[in-house]
Nucleic acid binder design. Structure first.
Lengths: 253, 253
DNA sequence: CGAGCTTTTGAACGCAGTCAACAATTGTGG
DNA sequence: CCACAATTGTTGACTGCGTTCAAAAGCTCG
């Protein structure tokens, strides 16, 4: 089952419901949200720095990235998004885009008007909280990337990024038998972990050599999750995938 | 006039009002928000990874930092906060803390119960939007730091960080004559820009040598703002300090 | 099947880290 | 108010992770 087989609304609701429980009325409101679905080619920019969007985009199929450029033209990816994500949800409350968003693979994208989102949020505060939370998880991932790129060496960094992909894709049902498709070039991986693409190539060879990942074309296979986690110094806490579950067993007083 | 001379509520309201306009009723609701004020010593952790706080903290005076550690014990600051900031506002919707917060100088801190915040947000959706926006600006700063630490060299990175300090402190009235107090050690600066403290020392010497900054004890003086901005490849867009004003003069169609 | 990406490889270089020692500053208790 | 302790800042020498440049080999796709 791929994420693509779900309707846009169902995909969105499932994602939000992983940590919130909605009333039927709230779900219905989401179901009625107008979403304009489009297929777009890889490489295309969805929004650019300086834009003032009047809509958000929901990734339905494919991968997108959020990036920024230095004045010298050096590129840094600050986020990668998978189906179910809303890469520019921030634009709901930040007038001007401070980053660009590009598609790193052919994508099916759904556009939702700010107006419609604001409407539904105003009526249902729990939905506001759910969307707000989405942006907070994004922020948490930024923080982890800052740690990863700032204080880990390239080998560990790459392992960490692969761990994150595995977890996030698993959460939307895009992992089977510890394998997933990763349609991303080494140049893009380099821009994500802040190294040169040449070094990415060498680090990937090392990871393959150590038996931590196998690759078949665009497919990535993780033969030993525990070993990759250790190599990547990976703790999934920052993805906040199970806060609610955790909340049910409160910390010892 | 220092930020410390304002009441906690006034400081918070001023900050939120820089981009929102509130009705008297909304301001009154904020004024009535219970805030427990405390003075705390430098170096103290306010919250730690894994905590499940039931309150947020508002910095009233002094500086705090948000940090994360690798399993090897290497530290990365992912954010620095100045008076008016709420470093752990995320905890309102993320059950478990994914980072720790420490005071880098003696601070006056105000604690606000989640319950009270949720209450006021529920009643006044515009306040929800204002707080949500605060967390989105935090996220925008994370993104810029990712670019800064990932794709700029140490000299530029440091200049950029100093530019950010100047702008953010100016926004809360803590800059006079292009000078501000920066009670932060070189070790902490190193942890912020992801280098060694030895290198921070050398980079600071270079910046001083190039006449971009002067230091007198904890005080930083910026003799030529334009030059520092250029050296730091700094564009204040990401701070979103003037989105509303910008919105009044919409982009050319 | 050729054009254009993408991946791979090698070699030289350089930014920044590490280690270690010392100087300066700040803080503290007598 | 001084003396001592502790923290912070500074310097030098050596090392190394990762960059840069350039070229070749492999893929993908019209």
């Amino acid at each position: 089952m791929t994420a693509g087989s779900l309707s846009p609304h169902t995909l969105m609701i499932r994602k939000l419901e992983s940590t919130f429980t909605f009333a039927d009325e709230e779900k219905q409101a989401l179901q009625n949200l107008p979403i304009q679905v489009t297929n777009l080619k890889a490489g295309r920019d969805i929004v650019r720095v300086g834009d003032r969007p009047s809509q958000c985009c929901l990734i339905l199929e494919g991968f997108s990235c959020v990036y920024k450029l230095t004045s010298e033209g050096k590129r840094q990816l600050v986020a990668l998004h998978v189906p179910g994500d809303i890469p520019d949800l921030q634009s709901l409350h930040l007038e001007v885009m401070d980053n660009s968003i590009a598609l790193i693979s052919p994508c099916t994208v759904g556009f939702i008007q700010h107006e419609d989102l604001r409407c539904v949020c105003e009526r249902y505060p729990r939905l506001t909280a759910a969307f707000w939370r989405e942006t907070l998880v994004d922020a948490s991932i930024f923080r982890e990337w800052l740690l990863n790129n700032g204080r880990r060496e390239a080998y560990t960094r790459m392992a960490h990024l692969l761990c994150e992909f595995l977890m996030r894709l698993k959460a939307v049902g895009l992992v089977e038998d510890d394998a997933f498709d990763l349609p991303i070039t080494q140049v893009e991986l380099a821009d994500a972990i802040g190294t040169s693409s040449v070094h990415v190539n060498r680090v990937l060879q090392a990871l393959r050599g150590d038996g931590l990942v196998q690759t078949k074309g665009k497919q990535v296979i993780v033969p030993d999750w525990e070993k990759l986690k250790e190599a990547g110094d990976f703790d999934p806490l920052y993805l906040h995938l199970e806060d609610v579950g955790a909340a049910r067993s409160p910390a010892v007083a």
